[in-house]
C-alpha cells in the first residue's frame, strides 16, 4: 500500500492504494467517480479516457501510484453545474451517443483533440485521432459530426474579438 495525492476535478484527494491499482480503478472504486468507464484490458477501447495534466490519457494504462501529484479531469468535472459544456452540448445536439458507455471517454478524447488543434479540424483529422476510442452503437457518424461542431464552437470562442466583431 502506498499513499497518493491527486487533484481530481479541482479537489485534492489523498488515499492509500495497492501497487497494482490502475488510475481507472482508483477513480471508480476509491473516489466513486463512476463516469470513467472500463471497457477492455488491453488499452484499446478508450472508455477510460481522462485528462491528466491537461492531456488525454487512457486511465487504465496508468497506475494510480504513478499518478501521484497529478491533476486529473474526469467527465464529472466537465459541465458547469448543470450546464453542459460545448463538447457535451455538441454530443447532445448531434445525437452522438446511444448507450452512452463510450461517451465519457469520447468527450474527454475529443476535448484534447479540439484543444490541440485549436479548433481547426477536418473530418479526416478527427477520424485519425479518435481511432483509439471504440463505440459500438453509433457507427461514429454522429460522433464525428459532434466533434467537428464542437471544434467550430471552440474556434469561434478563441477567435480574436476583432474577427468576430464584424
Amino acid at each position: 500500500m502506498q499513499e497518493v495525492t491527486l487533484r481530481v476535478n479541482g479537489e485534492d484527494y489523498t488515499r492509500k492504494v495497492e501497487g497494482r491499482t490502475l488510475l481507472a480503478q482508483f477513480l471508480r472504486d476509491q473516489l466513486r467517480l463512476t463516469g470513467t468507464h472500463i471497457g477492455c484490458d488491453t488499452t484499446q477501447c478508450g472508455a477510460c479516457t481522462v485528462l491528466m495534466d491537461g492531456r488525454a490519457v487512457k486511465s487504465c494504462t496508468i497506475l494510480a501510484a504513478a499518478a501521484d501529484g497529478a491533476e486529473v479531469q474526469t467527465i464529472e468535472g466537465v459541465a458547469e453545474g448543470e450546464r453542459l459544456n460545448f463538447v457535451q452540448q455538441a454530443f447532445h445536439e448531434h445525437h452522438a451517443l446511444q448507450c452512452g458507455f463510450c461517451t465519457p471517454g469520447m468527450v474527454m478524447a475529443a476535448t484534447d483533440i479540439i484543444r490541440r488543434h485549436e479548433g481547426v479540424l477536418d473530418e479526416m483529422t478527427v477520424r485519425r485521432e479518435l481511432e483509439g476510442n471504440l463505440c459500438r452503437c453509433t457507427g461514429y457518424h454522429n460522433i464525428i459530426k459532434a466533434v467537428l461542431a464542437a471544434a467550430e464552437v471552440y474556434r469561434r470562442s478563441k477567435a480574436p474579438a476583432q474577427a468576430t466583431a464584424n
Partner: peptide, 19 residues
C-alpha cells in the same frame, strides 16, 4: 426531439451495472 437520457450519460451520472 433531443434525448432525455443524454444529460446523465454526458455528465458521468449513468447507472451502469458495475457502477
Amino acid at each position: 426531439v433531443r434525448r432525455k437520457e443524454d444529460h446523465r450519460l454526458l455528465t458521468g451520472k449513468g447507472r451502469f451495472t458495475d457502477d
